[in-house]
Design a protein around this nucleic acid. Structure first.
Lengths: 205, 205
DNA sequence: TCGAGAAAACAACAACCGTCGTCTTATATT
DNA sequence: AATATAAGACGACGGTTGTTGTTTTCTCGA
């Protein structure tokens, strides 16, 4: 936990963190997140338990790093970037969210038991979405010094939470509409949010 | 945890749960949520630790009950109900969210240290918002049997998450615009979401 | 190549957690 | 008023959590 997770020189650190994340991933195939203990993780990772705490403050931090990294990688593989307006870009983010949830799903056929800590996973994904969306907005300074009533930060926050909330709701429903349709529906909901910024920027231009 | 929190006959149960919630509230004036242990709570509440687990599975469940109950009470005091369209009702929900966050703020002048479990509080509030919003929508069955591409559940989810995300972002910003202005801004973002249902219902009507 | 410095292993610590079984006390019903 | 029923108190348990200090091993730059 001393150094940020991205760009670590020392191969020992990379190795250890990779082992820890892999172990958690592996364990979550079988157990719920809160059924996994730090002991289990370090055991599977063949890492000393004390070493774990050199890298993450607790298992929630590990989860956060895992989710954030995984989602970012998913977007990177698909070369998804959000340019702030193009609906297809937003659609790609929505689809990625859906795919990430799917990929998270345990191999177990039975519906995954709801973990009490699902909110932590949720929050990690929302943060990841927010990071992508933020890239598509002009810096706040460009708007001028009269503080705008609605900031880009608020738009991004509302949009990322809305996207995730909708996708998650879709994902939890038993008879899911095809993903493609869902993406279109969610787009219809979210685009007004995102274009709120353009309208505002236009006013200030 | 055996019986739902609302409508409990036995005064012993009411008493104990009230004591526990009060203890947590009191402790959170000083400490962060994750610095509070079940021991502390039961100690302050003068309740045996084992008894705690007769009512809540863990301290997170207690938090959830506390937040959910508190938010619901806040809305009830103001006689806020969401009728599905009236923007003023949505505005009331937004304002209530803001007020609840404010009321949660510790007495400490220093900005509250970010708890690693803030997401759990967030999720509890979002659920509470969702419960209110759900009241304003017609039951899904009214729409017909051809499954709609976008369900009321998705709209409610997107809206509640968006509302909370935006309000929270506003709340965390250092130089806050007045709450009234914020409510208007967020309304501008969210109303399109909520009316998405009307448009759809109109089509099916 | 070598040596300073960082990372990991390891053991041990007090504290907390969740659960169990037993016993006591309060509630609601008849 | 008496009793079946349920809640609470209490003590004890094995297990997990973070943390600390020491020792060993590895990495990178001079």
């Amino acid at each position: 936990m001393p150094i940020s997770d991205c760009e670590v020189r020392d191969p020992r650190i990379r190795r250890t963190r990779h082992l820890l994340q892999g172990a958690l991933r592996e364990l979550m195939q079988t157990k719920t997140f809160d059924e996994v203990s730090v002991q289990d993780i370090t055991e599977v990772a063949t890492v000393n338990r004390a070493t774990f705490y050199d890298h993450y403050t607790d298992k929630y931090a590990l989860l956060d790093a895992m989710v954030g990294g995984g989602f970012h990688m998913l977007l990177h593989e698909r070369a998804v970037t959000f340019d702030g307006s193009c609906p297809s870009a937003a659609g790609a983010v929505i689809l990625a969210t859906c795919d990430y949830l799917t990929q998270m799903e345990t191999g177990d056929e039975v519906c995954q038991r709801q973990s009490a800590f699902q909110p932590l996973v949720d929050a990690a994904i929302v943060r990841a979405i927010g990071r992508v969306l933020t890239g598509g907005f002009p810096t706040e300074a460009a708007v001028g010094r009269d503080l705008p009533k609605i900031t880009n930060g608020m738009i991004v926050a509302a949009a990322s939470w809305a996207i995730y909330g909708a996708v998650r709701e879709w994902f939890m429903s038993e008879r899911r509409v095809p993903a493609e349709e869902m993406v279109q529906s969610v787009l219809g909901l979210v685009v007004p949010l995102l274009t709120a910024s353009e309208a505002r920027v236009a006013v200030h231009a």
